[in-house]
Simulated assay, not measured.
Amino acid sequence: MTKNKKYRVPTVLSIAGFDGSGGAGIQADTKTISALGCYAMNVLTALPVQNTQGVRRIYEIPTSVVQDQLDAIFEDIYPDAIKIGMVHNIELVVLISNYLTKYKGPIVFDPVMVSTSGHKLIHDDTIQACVTRLFPLATLITPNLDETSVLVDEPIHTIQKMEKAGNSLLAAGCQSVLIKGGHLESQELTSLLFQQQKPPIEFKSQKINSKNTHGSGCSLSSAIASQLAQGVALDRAVDIALSYIHAAIVGSKDLRIGKGNGPLNHFHTPLKLIQYELD
């Protein structure tokens, strides 16, 4: 850096839950955002007690504490992009949606609704509140197949059903939807990006034989938000983020971290902090 010059950096705020084992939640978000050259900030919404083998219990964070965290961030560092993860009760949905109504920037919402074992993590009334209050605010929502099935109340396990579900979610008021195909029963995985008044875009990749995929959804949404924070167009941001996650899974498939589903290798090719010269 030149001695007398000043620089700004792309900033990304993660509003999400906790993972003490380091593979998902705000820990995965922070690793991803940092590895992609952006500056990461956090607002904690819940304290799940979990490890690579699963979630044991979820402790509540009072809404007043979430409000205080948001105030502290926004009064000091205005985010260039926001990623939202676990929002597990109606009060938090209302607080966050009201707070972000006037936010000027892209929002990526990863609707954390179903555990890896297939159990719902939030109640139906909270899901409906997310649909009516947070989905319209989000630039992009990123449900996996299980979460998509919950949202459209129909099992989704084929590309044809993914297409139908994506169009239904657009019709329900979403700006754009990325349905992730990581759970498809095929060696070639397909994710579909749906945008208003545009044809869907397919993203294909080969399935990786690895159980180390803990936090892949958290990491993908943070990777997309990191690209959007830099001004990258949405379809390109999704493409870059999917490639990053694919490489992170490849980079962790031979690692043994924990007794269950291990984390990704977020730092397979880390970038330096991106800096833009100020006028």
Rank of each mutant, 00 (worst) to 15 (best):
Ile249Trp: 01
Gly215Glu: 00
Cys218Ser: 10
Val150Asp: 11
Tyr59Asp: 15
Ala171Asp: 14
Leu178Ile: 12
Gln187Glu: 15
Gly118Glu: 13
Ile61Lys: 04
Lys198Cys: 14
Pro136Met: 11
Tyr276Val: 13
His119Ala: 14
Gly118Met: 12
Ile84Asn: 08
Gln69Asp: 08
Leu242Arg: 15
Asn42Ala: 15
His214Gln: 06
Leu264Glu: 00
Cys174Asn: 14
Leu47Gln: 03
Val94Asn: 13
His88Val: 09
Pro199Gly: 03
Phe74Val: 03
Pro62Phe: 07
Ile61Ser: 04
Asp71His: 12
Ala237Lys: 03
Ile58Ala: 06
Val238His: 01
Asp146Met: 15
Leu134Val: 00
Glu202Cys: 14
Leu36Phe: 02
Lys164Glu: 10
Gly37Lys: 12
Arg236Met: 02
Leu140Met: 11
Gly166Gln: 06
Ala24Gly: 10
Ile122Asp: 02
Leu273Phe: 00
Pro200Val: 12
Leu170Asp: 05
Lys31Gly: 03
Lys272Gly: 15
Asp76Ile: 14
Phe135Thr: 11
Leu264Asn: 12
Thr63His: 11
Ile156Glu: 02
Tyr78Asp: 06
Leu170Lys: 11
Ile61Tyr: 06
Arg57Cys: 09
Lys104Ile: 13
Glu277Leu: 15
Val152Asn: 10
Ile26Ser: 08
Val114Met: 10
Leu134Ala: 03
Cys218Gly: 04
Gly182Leu: 12
Ile257Pro: 02
Gln195Pro: 00
Ser117Ala: 15
Val66Arg: 01
Ala40His: 04
His268Cys: 08
Phe203Cys: 07
Pro79Glu: 12
Asp110Arg: 09
Pro143Gly: 01
Glu147Gly: 12
Asn167Thr: 06
Gly25Cys: 10
Gly85Lys: 09
Pro270Leu: 04
Ser21Met: 07
Leu278Cys: 11
Arg256Gly: 00
Lys180Gly: 09
Lys211Asp: 14
Ser226Ala: 13
Pro200Ile: 05
Ile274Asn: 12
Leu193Ala: 10
Ser243Ile: 02
Asp76Tyr: 09
Ile245Leu: 14
Val66Ala: 05
Gly260Tyr: 06
Lys161Glu: 09
Cys218Gln: 01
Thr132Phe: 04
Thr139Ile: 03
Val177Thr: 04
Leu184Gly: 01
Gly181Val: 12
Leu178Glu: 10
Ile84Arg: 04
Val152Gln: 11
Leu255Asn: 14
Lys272Leu: 14
Tyr276Lys: 13
Ile156Cys: 07
Ile127Arg: 04
Val108Tyr: 03
Leu170Glu: 03
Pro111Asp: 10
Gly217Val: 07
Leu192Trp: 01
Ala171Gln: 15
Thr32Asp: 02
Ser222Met: 09
Ser191Ala: 13
Ile82Ser: 07
Ile82Glu: 06
Glu60Ala: 13
Asn265Ala: 15
Val12Pro: 07
Gly17Glu: 00
Gln160Trp: 00
Gly251Val: 00
His214Asn: 08
Glu60Cys: 04
Pro155Arg: 08
Leu278Arg: 08
Lys253Phe: 12
Leu121Gly: 07
Gln69Met: 07
Gly17Tyr: 05
Ser115Cys: 05
Ile208Phe: 02
Gly166Thr: 04
Ala46Cys: 15
Val112Lys: 04
Met41Asp: 09
Leu70Gln: 10
Asp125Val: 06
Val55Gly: 10
Ala225Lys: 00
Asp19Asn: 08
Ala24Phe: 12
Ser226Ile: 05
Val12Cys: 11
Lys253Asp: 01
Ser226His: 01
Leu134Phe: 04
Leu70Met: 14
Lys259Val: 05
